[in-house]
């Protein structure tokens, strides 16, 4: 049985809203990055950019948005395809394992981002 227990916010509306808001954050972040990349980028300017606090906060925000956004998206994909209806009795186990894998990966990414920008 597929349930809402592992969904991000447990309500459809919040998930839907979070996915839209986080996509806006990500869009804004990538526009900033793209703007930087359009001019010539070297190590020093790149380093300078990420030394500023607003950029550190912004990057962390983008990373967290990415986590929320991907969790909602992946949860949707997993509960579509990795189910007992699609895969037989093993469906639930496969889905839980995939969700575990995905959550570990996303957690790893956040730690990695924190380590890079705050160290």
């Amino acid at each position: 049985m597929v349930t809402s227990v592992t969904s991000f916010s447990r309500t459809g509306l919040s998930d839907w809203l979070i996915q839209r808001v986080t996509s806006l954050v990500l869009l804004a972040y990538f526009i900033v990055i793209a703007y930087q990349l359009v001019g010539s980028v070297d190590y020093t300017s790149w380093r300078l950019l990420f030394d500023q606090t607003w950029m550190k906060v912004f990057t962390l925000m983008a990373a967290l948005s990415l986590v929320a956004h991907s969790w909602i998206g992946l949860w949707s994909v997993f509960t579509d395809y990795l189910t007992e209806r699609m895969l037989g009795p093993k469906g639930n186990i496969i889905r839980l394992l995939s969700q575990l894998g995905a959550s570990l990966a996303l957690f790893g990414y956040v730690i990695w981002v924190v380590v890079i920008i705050w160290s």
Binding site: V2, S4, S7, R10, T11, G12, L13, D15, W16, W75, S76
Partner: peptide, 10 residues
């Protein structure tokens, strides 16, 4: 009754 992640938002 519609505000769960499945009913409408799929």
């Amino acid at each position: 009754k519609l505000d769960d992640p499945f009913s409408v938002f799929r």
